[in-house]
């Protein structure tokens, strides 16, 4: 479960999020749409505890992250970060570690899992995506799609309560493929939450349970996917959807 209350954030003096609030039940997949530069990635960064915000709060499960000047942010931060995982648009795998090394790095060194156990779990995940033969390869030896799978598994290996994906469809298509999709759906069905930022409404249409539309620094509206697509309430949402259908 994710709960955001009155989130306001700025970067270098520019306000990128203005009083954003939303609630998302566990087991759901949320898609965030909207024109680029409207704060979608900023929202994800805040939700992962990577970007301090000025006011409001974010809760994932039983952990709450307060605003930057609250004085308690640092104590809450480390526990909070374990609750969320993120897959960046450009993936940023660890180039000095093998595929297996990338996936077990945090379980072994952050969660202090025995290495053998972490490896077994990682191999299980790799098998689900059919790339267990790449376990000893290094990131640069993989195609973009294979790298994306590894990045997703690296985040999932920490078993976060919420998984964020930033523009997973840009120039990569494996996310559309059945096994990755299935993996994410299973993950959500197990009581987790998935948040996907994407410009592709078509992709989210058949995948996300709910959609949120971000206007300029604001959350304009949020609804069940079908409802938002067929019956948008706000003029700005209608305009965006009209435009995105053409593209």
């Amino acid at each position: 479960m994710i709960s955001i209350n009155g989130l306001t954030a700025s970067v270098e003096g520019t306000r990128l999020l203005n009083n954003v609030s939303m609630d998302l039940q566990s087991g759901r997949i949320l898609g965030i749409i909207g024109p680029s530069g409207n704060g979608k990635t900023t929202l994800l960064m805040c939700m992962c505890g990577l970007l301090p915000f000025e006011s409001g709060s974010i809760s994932i499960g039983d952990r709450t992250l307060p605003a930057a000047d609250s004085g308690t942010r640092n104590e809450a931060l480390w526990a909070f970060r374990k609750k969320s995982g993120i897959v960046f648009q450009h993936l940023h795998l660890f180039p000095h570690l093998s595929v297996l090394g990338n996936i077990i790095e945090a379980p072994v060194h952050v969660s202090r899992k025995p290495k053998a156990e972490a490896e077994k779990e990682a191999l299980g995940l790799l098998e689900k995506l059919g790339i267990e033969q790449y376990r000893n390869k290094y990131p640069e030896e993989l195609s973009g799609g294979e790298q994306q799978r590894v990045a997703i598994l690296r985040a999932l290996a920490m078993n976060p309560e919420a998984l964020m994906l930033d523009e997973p469809t840009s120039a990569l298509d494996p996310i559309r493929s059945g096994d990755v999709r299935k993996l994410l759906q299973e993950f959500a069905a197990a009581g987790h939450t998935v948040v996907i930022v994407s410009h592709s409404v078509r992709f989210l249409k058949g995948f996300a349970d709910q959609l949120a539309f971000m206007g300029k620094s604001e959350l304009i509206e949020m609804n069940a996917t079908r409802e938002l697509l067929e019956n948008p309430k706000d003029e700005r949402t209608r305009e965006f959807l009209r435009f995105s259908e053409l593209s």
Binding site: C48, G49, K82, S84, A106, H109, A155, M158
Partner: peptide
């Protein structure tokens, strides 16, 4: 790249 820090932090380091 500074994103390497971000990834490490997001994994709880």
């Amino acid at each position: 790249p500074s994103r390497q820090w971000h990834v490490a932090y997001s994994l709880g380091m």
